[in-house]
Design a binder for these strands. Structure first.
Lengths: 109, 109
DNA sequence: CGCATTCATCGTAATATTGCAATTAATATG
DNA sequence: CATATTAATTGCAATATTACGATGAATGCG
């Protein structure tokens, strides 16, 4: 085991979980925040800022790219990463939809 | 390794990541949605609904309780779980704050 | 009390994740 | 062209997660 039984759940549930999971690591939160604060593309500066090895940062960037939160464009020898507006918007909508679903419901305990 | 280097990040980043992670599994998403749809406490019905062993559900419930999203109250031999309004609200605020931080910023690529 | 029901916990197996050093690929620069 | 720089990839080691069966604790019921 150690494997999630994805077949027990709906596609929607699996996707939502995957989105949450992508942000379920402080390094990936930190990367996003760095990208936001710099207001610009950052590349290997993340390695300097975050105190993790280059290979590790690269891996986290890949995961963030996979879920569509960021995109990377090659610029010479370095790569420029920044928020993907579309992916970000979708994320926000999904999150909102999830959390909104509770509002106004009365609890039993 | 396999261990997150939490000391590299701020408390806030670690906490936010932990919150995301708690919802980063389809079973836990499904549990929350079950609790929402039922509008009432559910206990071992989750085991029937979700197709996972009782021990597994119990573990997921524990994690959701740990991050404050749900609370459980013992009722006889069974236990009633439901959304914790306070925890839910805090979650929502944190998520909102995170996603809002991008709005209106111009991207470079 | 004796037994059933419900759920938490423990122990364990299988798999996933995190992190790094080393290597590779691609581009720039002298 | 030779070398340096940047970042992706590969291959590992250590730890975490997921899932389950078995067991235990608590409560309800005959």
């Amino acid at each position: 085991m150690g494997t999630t039984k994805a077949e027990n759940f709906t596609d929607r549930q699996n996707r939502l979980a995957q989105m949450m999971k992508a942000l379920g690591h402080p390094a990936r939160i930190a990367i996003i925040q760095e990208l936001l604060n710099a207001k610009t593309c950052i590349c290997n500066e993340l390695v300097n800022e975050l105190g993790l090895a280059q290979a590790t940062i690269s891996q986290h960037l890949k995961e963030l790219k996979n879920v569509g939160l960021i995109k990377g464009t090659v610029e010479g020898t370095s790569t420029c990463y920044c928020i993907d507006p579309k992916g970000w918007k979708q994320y926000r909508q999904q999150m909102d939809a999830f959390f909104v679903s509770y509002e106004g419901k009365n609890n039993c305990c």
